[in-house]
Design a protein around this nucleic acid. Structure first.
Length: 889
RNA sequence: GGGCGAUUGGCGCAGUGGCUAGCGCGCCGGCUUUACACGCCGUGGGUCGGGGGUUCGAAUCCCUCAUCGCCUACCA
């Protein structure tokens, strides 16, 4: 047995064990090992962006996955945790382009051209793509790294293309000219999910237009976008609006001087909100989704006045031509005012869609794009509704269902270079969709690439070698659990489910655990600009990975956001230290670990801690089954610190310092039994320190060597004790009462020192008057826990009236103080206590005097209430006596 | 506009019909007690967001109001 060093040095220990696990292939999944006796457990990582660095969200997410994977291994399952990274189209291209501009390699991507830019991005990927993988290893992630995947691996790319071609042939993918969300900065179309609505402090401008047929009539219109007036091709009112009924079918003239000064038809459309503004809408079909649809209904002209880059064009008129859209808004407003058409401008809050990546307002734009009609919609809705696929917390299934109910076709083409190129070729009017370029000359491949999510929605099976019918796929698909954030429920989760049904005929995972969002302790979202996002690597450096994991899990309840506080990590660190020192203390006692427990030598404390351990095993195991990791950590914390260290270990000291070798050996055996179980219960949460201590205490010697290494990783998950075990060791309930009474007496006894302000270190003499015969062992332990010089057992003890006393079911514990008491302070304390007792008695009385209660409450509830009243009355009597005594003193 | 969630001691949370509403951190007081000051011992501190109802009994179930958060939405 190697000696456990005095100070825990996590950095060296963590590196050592991670290498050990990797060398011994502890993370490797082998489909051949899967059998009835050894079921498969699988989980695919939500692939982080290949250029990403580890943040607190990853820590939370991957710690949970690792906990699940490690627990599954201890349950005897063959575990595949499949890792990988995502090429993250726009994000990555942005990052690399920015770097290249900074380095002066290019000003704009057109300077380099497609091929060259892609070379640079690949180069970047090779250089930085491994960073986050190394960081996950630091965290302790037990992924099967031999299967590391990337969404632009050759095989993966083939999957993406194959699916595209298939859906094209099924008629589910089509090309069309539609209104899309256009990002004027990235110069690409975006899906609805990539647009984030943000509330803006805007202005609502009221201006007037003249009705052509009735020159005396002016219509007032409210708009937030006066710069698009040149793109207006109609005026719309609600058909049920009496104010404007007589104008329908007539025309109006734009106030802005533009080349094309046509008369705009006034149309009636149900979509117009009578209440809003003036109830009159200017219709700009080219620059607003709703307007486009109104335009379609009334055959209005589409006048595109904004270019792809967000600048106005010549159709906007000479005044606005070439201006940025926001600049143009100011100019247009000034122009309206100059013309006397502006009535007023009022402050107004509205929601504007922003590009998720480029963070600029998106521009609705008519554009030729590829769209996808979602496949397997019915099955995908059904599996969540009927519980075949479970969401944790369950309430997200409503969100899911709501979205599935209103599915809109997905715009999948992106005007980018980094990504999977669309497998379609054109030659004149001809079009070819296939895995290979068509035969013959003159074919041009579509320049666009696919939305990133258009590859990641295949992740669960594409990473397992699909479309080949591989062993991995057969054994590990569908996966067991998916751990991800609810923010990508539509982006990713829903789409994976649909792809899973469409291509594997089965759901992709059975359970989805939605983590909360990691916020700072003030509840704010973590962000670079706020600077409130700690670097997990620094936290690991300072506190250890185990501390970070435990601290995070301890404050991350299922279904709630995580308010991250570095204090939590500190607590994790402190806990590791406690664990470490408790094990060190064990080792300092010497003795072998293989000691068998002799049931005849078990003390009440031994039995009690075994019962507590059994309880902890049940609680932690149940918590796992319900994905309640916070509960599991709370149980472990309570059990190990409050029950094992604070009471059991302290009780053991009486034995350890005694001369009784047999008794000592038996306590050590119990101690080892408990720590052996505890380390295993902790292992999923704190893999490194538990492995170190497992070896340090010599438990590894008991391990089967079936994976080329002796490791706690494959030790069996503790099971709740069987009845025959409990019987053999006499672990019956009566133990709990005895030990609880003992603890109560000790705590109360320690409190007696408070009366005279006697420091705990001072050895003093207590006298105990036992209620029944008290074991010599119990007396010894109580004396030790009280740090008493002596503890005299005297069944006939007749204390002087008012001697401080502590009581519990075990008996009475006296501390003769002989004039050390501060009479006044003590009196105040007792008076206060009396008030509290009186109020409790009143409550209990009221309850028992209520005939409805006494008639209808069940017998045991009634009895409890009676007992409680009696208890309080007794306390009242005792307190009165003490006060009386003080008055005499 | 619709939906979801939250509201319990200073802070973060547990507690879904019945013990005196718990826990962690913090606060306060005392301790170099033979593992651990990243520690030990102990004390305070809450009319469970407001109001109403159901019930013998409500933090817990129902109604209502308030505040906060999240998601969703083509009110320009």
């Amino acid at each position: 047995m190697a000696e456990i060093p005095k100070a825990y040095e996590p950095q060296a220990v963590e590196t050592k064990w991670y290498s050990f696990w990797e060398e011994h292939e502890c993370f490797t999944a082998d489909p051949e090992r899967v059998s009835e006796a050894r079921p498969a457990y699988s989980i695919v990582i939500p692939p982080p962006n290949v250029t990403g660095v580890l943040h607190m969200g990853h820590v939370l997410n991957n710690t949970i996955q690792d906990i699940l994977a490690r627990k599954a291994r201890m349950d005897g399952k063959e575990v595949l945790w499949l890792p990988g990274t995502d090429h993250a189209g726009i994000a990555t291209q942005n990052v690399v382009e920015r770097a290249l501009r900074k380095e002066g390699v290019m000003k704009h991507r057109d300077d380099l051209g497609r091929e060259k830019l892609l070379e640079h991005i690949w180069e970047w990927k090779e250089k930085h793509g491994g960073i986050i993988i190394d960081q996950l290893k630091k965290l302790g992630a037990s992924c099967d790294w031999s299967r590391l995947r990337f969404t632009m691996d050759e095989n993966y790319t083939k999957c993406v293309q194959r699916v595209f071609v298939d859906l094209y042939k099924k008629g589910l993918i089509y090309r069309g000219k539609r209104m899309v969300n256009w990002c004027p900065k990235s110069l690409t179309a975006l899906s609805d999910e990539e647009v984030i609505m943000k509330e803006q402090n805007s202005q609502l401008f009221y201006f007037k237009v003249q009705v052509v047929e009735e020159p005396d009539t002016w219509l007032e219109i409210a708009t937030t976008r006066p710069e698009t007036i040149p793109g207006d091709s109609g005026i719309a009112v609600n058909p049920n609006d009496p104010r404007y009924a007589n104008l329908i079918g007539k025309h109006a003239v734009r106030p802005l001087p533009v080349e094309n000064q046509a008369h705009l038809p006034i149309v009636a459309d149900e979509h117009i909100d009578i209440e809003f503004g003036t109830g009159v809408l200017k219709v700009t079909p080219a620059h607003d989704k709703a307007d486009f649809e109104i335009g379609q209904r009334h055959k209005l002209e589409v006048i595109d006045v904004i270019n792809a880059n967000g600048k106005m064009n010549e159709l906007a008129g000479a005044d606005l031509d070439g201006l940025d859209r926001f600049e143009a808004r100011k100019v247009a407003t000034a122009k309206l005012e100059e013309m006397g058409a502006l009535i007023k401008a009022e402050d107004y809050k509205n929601n504007v869609g922003f590009s998720e990546r480029a963070d600029v307002p998106i521009e609705p734009r008519l554009s030729e794009q590829w769209f996808l009609k979602y496949p397997s919609q019915e099955q995908s809705r059904e599996c969540v509704a009927n519980g075949a696929l479970k969401f944790y917390p369950e309430r997200w299934s409503k969100t899911y269902d709501y979205w599935m109910d209103g599915l809109q076709d997905w715009c999948i083409s992106r005007q980018l270079w980094w990504g999977h190129r669309i497998p379609v070729w054109y030659r004149g009017e001809e079009i070819h969709c296939g895995l290979e370029a068509p035969e013959g000359d003159g074919w041009e491949q579509d320049p666009d690439v696919l939305d990133t999510w258009c590859s990641s929605w295949l992740w669960p099976f594409a990473t397992m070698g699909w479309p080949g019918d591989t062993e991995t796929l057969k054994k590990f698909y569908p996966t067991t659990d998916l751990v991800t954030g609810p923010d990508i429920i539509f982006f990713w989760v829903a789409r994976m489910i649909m792809a899973g049904y469409e291509y594997k005929g089965d759901l992709p995972f059975r359970n989805v655990y939605f983590t909360g969002i990691v916020r700072d302790k003030k509840g704010r979202k973590m962000s670079k600009s706020l600077g409130n996002s700690p670097d997990p690597l620094e936290l690991i450096e300072q506190y250890s990975a185990d501390a970070l994991r435990f601290g995070t899990m301890r404050s991350a309840p299922l279904g709630a956001d995580v308010l991250f506080d570095e204090k939590d990590v500190e607590l994790g660190r402190n806990f590791c230290n406690k664990l470490w020192n408790a094990c060190r203390f064990r080792q300092m006692q010497g003795g072998e670990t293989e000691g068998e427990i002799d049931p005849t030598l078990l003390t009440s404390d031994d039995r009690w801690i075994l019962r507590r351990l059994d309880q902890a095993i049940t609680e932690v195991t149940d918590a796992f089954a319900a994905y309640r990791f916070t509960d599991a950590t709370a149980t472990l914390y309570r059990f190990f610190w409050s029950e094992f260290c604070d009471w059991y270990v302290e009780s053991c000291k009486a034995t350890f310092f005694s001369e009784d070798a047999a008794r000592k050996a038996n306590v050590l055996a119990v101690f080892d039994f408990v720590t052996g179980h505890t380390l295993r219960l902790f292992h999923p949460f704190m893999p490194f320190i538990t492995e170190e201590l497992w070896h340090g205490l010599g438990f590894s010697a008991e391990m089967p060597d079936d994976q080329g290494g002796q490791t706690i990783m494959t030790a069996h998950w503790p099971k709740s004790f069987q009845d025959d075990f409990k019987e053999h060791y006499a672990l019956d309930e009566t133990i709990d009462d005895l030990v609880a009474a003992k603890h109560e007496l000790v705590t109360a006894g320690r409190n007696l020192r408070g009366i005279g302000n006697i420091p705990f270190a001072k050895k003093i003499d207590y006298i105990i008057k036992p209620a029944a015969k008290l074991d010599a062992y119990e007396v010894e332990v109580i004396q030790s826990l009280l740090n008493a010089e002596s503890l005299k057992v005297d069944a006939d003890y007749a204390p002087r009236k008012g001697t401080p006393v502590a009581r519990s079911a075990l008996g009475e514990l006296y501390l003769p103080l002989d004039g050390l008491i501060d009479v006044d302070a003590e009196k105040v304390r007792l008076e206060k206590q009396l008030e509290k007792i009186a109020s409790e008695i009143q409550k209990a009385d009221a309850k028992l005097n209520n005939p409805k209660f006494t008639e209808r409450a069940p017998e045991e509830v009634l009895q409890e209430a009676k007992d409680r009243l009696a208890e309080w009355q007794q306390k009242e009597q005792q307190t009165r006596e003490a006060i009386e005594y003080l008055a005499d003193a």
